[in-house]
Design a protein around this nucleic acid. Structure first.
Lengths: 152, 152
DNA sequence: CTCGACTAAGTCGCGCACAACTTAATCGAG
DNA sequence: CTCGATTAAGTTGTGCGCGACTTAGTCGAG
């Protein structure tokens, strides 16, 4: 009976609760859900918010570089950017020096949104409720995991 | 210049690389991507695989309980289960004692798939490349994070 | 210069994920 | 017993996320 309670997860267990992958999947959706009401206020979805984070750091980014930063395909980004453009937050224009490439730039409204977005990471950090050490450890492990799983 | 390299992330930074939420989002998608070729062999998507994990543990589960285990809405599960049924892996039948509830059961093919799925967690665990301690820490932190973010 | 390889962005189809809603069954206060 | 509230499952609409493919522009060997 003690075997059920305290046995460490067997290698290759098919039990849902043993699996890191599920903890990851559940946590990711839970965090996104937590963002939703805050981002609704800004008229953004979570992936749109990530794109805006990149543009607030550095304006005039190509779709390719956005994909590199966010690890997203152009087939995901193109429609998303179209929606951001329709909402008046970004403009897209072909690069003069390479007509294949498209530069995504903030509009005035897109740049202005930054101020209103400042409260978001604080609110989320607060909701996450991890100590700075836990936060750092989590980030370190998740990056290592991403690295390992992507290479391999 | 040392400030750029070694400054700890400011509270409420809008920098993408500082954010735990992005590390989580990226890791989750990277892990799912790693599963994809393995699950293609079994004719499953990743969320379908999670449903099968639950059913392999305990057969005849209601949609409600599946939702509880996986933290998914019926609006996500209903079409997913329909596809699993179309692929011959599960059956759905109304409960006699409560006609609102639907019991999801494995077909023979669904039960048989379990054997072929045994290799999957091992392969993924291997690809993740974390030590048992790192794996345990990651799970612990992700569950804590999910808990905090869900309650709050 | 030319033409085939490569690259950037975008389209299309499918399967989630979830909010808002609908339908049907059950429950429980009066 | 009855009827309003609750609950389970499903439907609809929107936005990802990605594989497979298309279109258009660039590059480089010959």
């Amino acid at each position: 009976m003690a075997a059920t309670a305290n046995t460490p997860p067997a290698q290759g267990s098919l039990q849902l609760r043993d699996q890191l992958c599920f903890a990851l999947y559940a946590a990711s959706r839970a965090v996104t859900a937590r963002y939703r009401p805050l981002l609704d206020e800004l008229g953004l979805t979570y992936p749109q918010y990530l794109v805006m984070l990149v543009l607030w750091e550095r304006d005039a980014v190509s779709v390719r570089d956005l994909g590199g930063a966010l690890q997203l395909e152009s087939s995901t980004l193109s429609p998303l950017l179209k929606r951001l453009e329709a909402n008046g937050l970004v403009r897209r224009e072909r690069r003069a020096d390479d007509e294949r490439s498209v530069a995504v730039r903030l509009t005035e409204a897109g740049a202005d949104l930054r101020e209103r977005a400042r409260a978001v990471p604080l609110a989320i950090g607060d909701a996450m409720g991890l100590t700075p050490e836990q936060d750092a450890t989590a980030k370190r492990l998740l990056r290592l995991l991403t690295e390992n799983v992507t290479r391999g």
